[in-house]
Design a protein around this nucleic acid. Structure first.
Lengths: 198, 198
DNA sequence: AAATAAAATTAACATTGTTAATTTTATAAC
DNA sequence: GTTATAAAATTAACAATGTTAATTTTATTT
């Protein structure tokens, strides 16, 4: 049965993916090698190439799993009692610190070369992604009169790009600013965008 | 004389740096290898290690040269006749397109691992850097009453981070948006920040 | 039970950055 | 100017990498 085969295939793929994820968690992306993955998965390293076109493709699967992890972590910071602006600050703070503590994860999720990621995966990922949480908040800010409805998108884009832009500079050591400095900047950017101090 | 020696030393370093820069321009960062650098510089590849601790250090020198190139390019877009907001848009557009056309350059300048870059270099670079051009404009916008003086910094930070954040997603193919889409976003972000449409 | 297809493994290859050993070149002493 | 010494450059070598080819093992079908 083609179905049975497919289940087996998926299972073995998962062995490799999980092995790779463990190694990445322990040694970072740069510590990952085909041979280590094979060892940890209990197979030969050459077997990997029966399931993935190359290591980049395997890495892409890891990335989507890790993004899912990050999303789950972020959901833990949802707090209905919070004012919408404070909720944005809490999310931003959590997200920023998440990657400051796991710079390798940032490297992997946003920077590492993954070859050609299938566009469907990207679109799927976008729906159940961290961006959604942020957008919810911003929409609430519009409903509660902090910002204009027509500006929801532009503010969302600004904030999202700004967070990742800062993380790039921090993670890749292209700026003298500290993580704390950047977090303060980010907070004042949010307050500025939400008109609080104007 | 130690001086004479130092001149010779600097000269040979430059041979290697220039060779590396040529290779990067032709084949991208990933095409760069110690052996190719040696060949092109007319020396053995092992000689590199008499002048640089490793390839990363050589790469760091290339990065600062390339940043200088980029700065010179940007200066070409300075136009005193332009309204300050339009000048910001022109700069942003030019900068964005520069890296869209040279994604490898973006990779190298902002992302590639350069080991421990001496902090003095970073600080020096910051002064004669692209950021200065942008900041000038934003200050002019404050003088001409488009924005509040007290918001200069926050707007500067937002814009700078946003540009680089978008470039990361584009260059590393983490978004389905096209470069043109992002440029439009960027333009409306600038107009938003400068209150034009409010 | 034998023949065939599929999957997994071992062995091999070409490249890589980096270091050790060796040779060449420059400098200093006489 | 010749010889001893220091410096610099080169060749040779190493260990590690991703990937592929050849071979062996396992599963499937006849």
């Amino acid at each position: 049965m083609s179905n049975k085969k497919e289940i087996q295939r998926k299972r073995i793929m998962k062995f490799f993916i999980d092995a790779a994820k463990e190694i990445i968690k322990e040694e970072g992306v740069k510590g990952l090698t085909a041979r280590k993955i094979g060892d940890r998965a209990g197979h030969s390293y050459a077997t990997i190439y029966n399931y993935f076109s190359d290591i980049k493709e395997l890495l892409a699967y890891c990335v989507f799993d890790f993004l899912e992890d990050c999303y789950q972590y972020m959901i833990g910071f949802k707090n209905e009692n919070l004012n919408c602006i404070d909720q944005i600050i809490v999310y931003t703070d959590a997200y920023f610190k998440y990657f400051i503590e796991k710079p390798d994860m940032f490297q992997l999720i946003f920077i590492e070369d993954l070859g050609n990621i299938p566009i469907e995966l990207l679109k799927r990922e976008k729906k159940l992604s961290i961006g959604v949480l942020l957008k919810e908040c911003i929409c609430r800010c519009a409903e509660e009169g902090y910002i204009e409805k027509e500006n929801i998108d532009v503010i969302y884009n600004l904030l999202g790009s700004s967070i990742h832009g800062k993380l790039v500079f921090l993670v890749n050591k292209r700026d003298v600013k500290s993580a704390d400095d950047m977090l303060l900047e980010l907070k004042s950017e949010i307050e500025f965008l939400m008109k609080i101090k104007r």
